[in-house]
């Protein structure tokens, strides 16, 4: 079974860009468990729109700087 979502993200890269923010730190800011942050980074969980906005806000970047969806050809 491949990844269950076509949504990709740059959460890991953004964490490192934000002073090596830890997964636990991001989880605290967004109000989720660390396991959920890990699942998102590994592409095993596609968050709700609300959580996606919260993650983008934690990094102070627009939503599509964090999450991307491939163009349909």
């Amino acid at each position: 079974m491949g990844k269950p979502t076509r949504v990709t993200n740059r959460v890991r890269a953004l964490r490192f860009a934000a002073g090596e923010m830890t997964q636990a730190n991001l989880a605290d800011r967004v109000g989720v468990t660390r396991q959920t942050v890990i699942a998102i980074e590994q592409g095993r969980y596609s968050p709700s729109l609300e959580m996606a906005f919260q993650i983008a806000r934690a990094f102070n970047v627009p939503l599509d700087d964090v999450f991307q969806y491939p163009e349909v050809k």
Partner: peptide, 14 residues
């Protein structure tokens, strides 16, 4: 040395 609340937490994914 981690937070027990993180382990017990239930979020939207759960």
């Amino acid at each position: 040395g981690g937070s027990a609340s993180d382990e017990f937490g239930k979020d939207e994914r759960d």
